[in-house]
């Protein structure tokens, strides 16, 4: 998998440093005006954050421009942006994003279902299933790359192996959060359901699931973060082209194409924020005491 299938990525038109700084200043000017006009949307604190970010980008650009650090090792942001625009225009990036998002979503759904189910089994039905706990703890501490060989042998080269590795990363935070949530169920809540003639399964449905909801959500947020971390490792098993951002990073790393690596890093960071925001949306769905 040494870049033989990587399409030739020639940057059509590279922004010059001057041009790039001009655009940056223009954006900053527009934001300043918006800050005056719509202070609720473009708040002062947001402006402060953006100013710091802008400062970092400008210094980074200048460091490359004056070749304080070799631009091959640290490509300037103007180059990264240009390449991203080019890869987007030929439809290459969309394919990679789709492939990775598909795998992460698949693995996340599997992890959510299996994590909550097994978490409830080993905590709520601990009389029967507590023996699983130490076994799972042992698996938990084995790092994901260690599973690569087994994953390839079990699931072959391709999506399934990658999904397995990502699942491993997301599964354990959700499992642990479900177990911690079950421990937070109060005796009086259980007894309430019992006095109304409910049984163990009514307690599970009416009390345990609502109580662990917030805990599982926290676990899911940690899990999806780890999921994105494992993407690059997981997509080491991908050899076909168009197999995701992790594959793109791996492949261009080997070719010392640092600009493409940076495009991939940027996109993973961005998608990470988006996925976290989506999960955060579910926070208010089940009210608690505070």
């Amino acid at each position: 998998m040494h870049g033989t299938v990587f399409p030739p990525l020639e940057i059509g038109e590279v922004l010059s440093t001057v041009h790039f700084l001009e655009i940056l200043s223009a954006i900053f000017l527009i934001l300043t005006v918006l800050n005056r006009l719509l202070p609720h949307i473009v708040s002062a604190s947001l402006m402060k954050g953006l100013a710091v970010l802008g400062g970092i980008i400008v210094s980074w650009e200048l460091i490359s421009f004056y070749e304080i650090i070799n631009p091959v090792l640290l490509p300037p942001p103007s180059r990264v942006v240009s390449l991203m625009a080019h890869l987007w225009s030929i439809g290459f990036l969309q394919t990679q994003i789709y492939s990775t998002v598909y795998k992460i979503t698949y693995a996340f759904t599997l992890a959510l279902v299996s994590g909550v189910t097994i978490g409830i089994m080993i905590s709520y039905f601990s009389n029967t299933f507590s023996f699983l706990e130490s076994f799972l703890n042992a698996i938990r501490v084995v790092p994901a790359p260690a599973w690569l060989a087994l994953a390839i042998l079990w699931f072959g080269i391709g999506h399934a192996s990658a999904i397995f590795i990502i699942w491993l990363g997301i599964f354990f935070p959700i499992l642990l959060s479900a177990v911690a949530g079950v421990a937070k169920v109060e005796q009086v809540q259980v007894e309430t359901v019992l006095t109304f003639g409910g049984d163990k399964y009514d307690v599970l449905l009416e009390v345990v699931l609502p109580v662990i909801y917030h805990h599982v959500l926290t676990g899911a947020r940690i899990g999806i973060g780890i999921g994105w971390i494992t993407v690059v490792t997981a997509e080491l098993v991908s050899v076909s082209a168009n197999s995701g951002l992790g594959w793109m990073i791996n492949d261009s790393r080997i070719l010392l194409d640092i600009t493409t690596v940076m495009v991939g890093m940027f996109l993973i960071g961005f998608l990470g924020i988006v996925s976290d925001a989506i999960i955060n949306r579910f926070e208010g769905l089940v009210p608690g005491w505070d």
């Binding site: 109060e186 809540q189 309430t192 006095t195 609502p210 009210p287 005491w289």
Partner: peptide, 14 residues
């Protein structure tokens, strides 16, 4: 035989 518990937390917040 219904029970009213001492703790307010017996009411389900969800």
């Amino acid at each position: 035989r219904a029970m009213v518990f001492q703790s307010e937390r017996a009411v389900f917040p969800w």
